[in-house]
Design a protein around this nucleic acid. Structure first.
Length: 105
DNA sequence: AGCGTGACGTGTA
DNA sequence: GTACACGCCACGC
């Protein structure tokens, strides 16, 4: 999975960089911020093109239901969950507790 | 060109 | 709480 949405790639990265620690946001929120509202999928595509070693905290971007839909890019669910919990994000079952941790751009 | 697929979201039932 | 339809668009075939 190494393709990027050339048009908004930079804007997306910039927005993701603004997500504070112990907070998460969702694909749709970023899409709306960039004015591509209903194209949340493109944000997910852009995340897939982010090298993990870069400073971009892509693990803080999850879906609106609080599920770690991008876990496969971080070595599986357990690893991505660990990355988040390490920053103070708490879970409610299999999902992130969005009530406490949702951040909107 | 069409068609299926996917780190998605909202509305409706 | 679940399930399904629909809108969206880049990519690979």
């Amino acid at each position: 999975l190494s393709y990027a949405t050339k048009k908004n790639e930079k804007e997306i990265h910039r927005t993701v960089l603004q997500i504070p620690k112990w907070k998460v946001t969702n694909y749709g929120a970023i899409a709306r911020k960039l004015g591509i509202g209903s194209s949340a999928r493109l944000v997910g595509h852009a995340m897939a093109s982010v090298p993990e070693d870069l400073e971009i905290p892509a693990h803080r971007v999850i879906n609106s239901a609080g599920q770690l839909s991008g876990a496969h890019a971080f070595g599986g669910y357990e690893r991505m969950r660990w990355l988040l919990e390490r920053e103070g994000v708490t879970f409610k079952g299999e999902k992130v507790d969005m009530k406490k941790h949702l951040w909107l751009p």
